[in-house]
Design a protein around this nucleic acid. Structure first.
Lengths: 201, 201
DNA sequence: ATTTTGACTTTGTAACTAAAAAAGTCAGAA
DNA sequence: TTCTGACTTTTTTAGTTACAAAGTCAAAAT
């Protein structure tokens, strides 16, 4: 297996793993399967990633990039703050639906991977910053009023995650039925409305 | 073991179980231990309760009664809607702190006990009704504005539960550290503020 | 020098098992 | 009607094994 350089091969591995993970689940995918897909040996994978956890995290980071790309596009297209916040909701949902088998929660709980905390913290901060930006823009345009957009944004993200979690009757899982998705969506839209109202006074 | 009547003995059993459960956890408490505490035989317990699940649920119902008693007192003493909503938060927290070993989530997930769903639904509805009442009173007094207090109340409760859940890093558990309690409290107060603001426009 | 690999070792996990503990039952006593 | 000792059944736990997957490394290939 010959490639231009180190980074290119890393990308190929991540993409192969992403495919397997999204189809069959991360824990049901073996390193041998990924190697076979790439027509290379398992040992090669370990030349690019110290262990499976690191590969898993890299796959999640890749998925995160795709998510933020969509979020930023959606946000840019929105005519105002209210629309921007409401449009984020289905983007989030589609992402969750598409990548539910990446076993995000498993990695999040796993303390074996030291960098994972940092990765998730950064993703959370980025998402919060996007919401804060939306609010700030709304304040600048006279649509909203807020003396602390960052704090409100953090609370907004935290509450939205909370609604998602409190609606999954089962334990902390990545599997959600279409019916549950719809219920979560409705609650999230309602909560967004409250926030928007609260930010208009 | 002689008592006035059936209900009195049921109460004694529930209270003994409540003590054991809160100290050592429900799943670490055996029916024999409860029987020994009451100086009666295990078989007697089964005369009053069909199985351990039913006793567990009765204990939770008892705790629920204590909770609502405190909530109603706190609500009655509050001078306005804002104070009533904010005062509910520490009451909820103290309840969670006191009865965290009752393994509420375990029973909630357990589908063996058919009545449990109904019990929790009723408790949720009662809590929602209390919040809705606070909002309605606020609307009547000119403090708040809302065209659908029931829906807002349901969203409020759901969001507060969500914040609690999204802050427990670990899996769905009843164990929470004092530090986590404080963090949850702060988020919940902030969210309450947003709701109150949103209901003043 | 960098990248790859086959053959290897180590680790984790699913499937059994046996023993113990706890749940739950019941005929008969109080 | 209430209670109990002696009983059976079910669940949990702790071990065990056997297999699959993770992870390593010296040497080969580029």
């Amino acid at each position: 297996m010959h490639t231009e350089n180190r980074d290119e091969m890393r990308e190929r591995i991540i993409e192969a793993a992403l495919k397997r993970f999204t189809h069959y689940g991360a824990s049901k995918t073996t390193m041998n399967e990924i190697a076979d897909d790439l027509h290379c040996s398992k040992a090669s994978l370990y030349y690019y990633f110290p262990d499976k956890h690191a590969l898993h995290l890299a796959v999640l980071e890749k998925a995160g990039e795709m998510y933020f790309q969509e979020i930023e596009q959606s946000t840019a297209e929105a005519p105002n703050a209210e629309a921007a916040l409401l449009d984020m909701i289905p983007v989030r949902q589609n992402f969750a639906r598409k990548f539910c088998r990446l076993e995000l929660f498993k990695v999040l709980k796993d303390k074996q991977l030291l960098n994972s905390d940092e990765t998730f913290r950064l993703a959370r901060e980025k998402e919060t910053a996007i919401v804060a930006g939306i609010i700030r823009k709304g304040v600048a345009g006279g649509e909203l009023v807020s003396d602390n957009p960052d704090q409100v944004a953090a609370l907004y993200i935290q509450s939205m995650i909370g609604l998602r979690l409190s609606l999954s009757t089962r334990e902390l899982t990545d599997e959600i039925s279409e019916e549950e998705f719809e219920t979560v969506r409705q609650w999230q839209v309602q909560l967004a409305d409250i926030f928007i109202k609260g930010l208009k006074s």
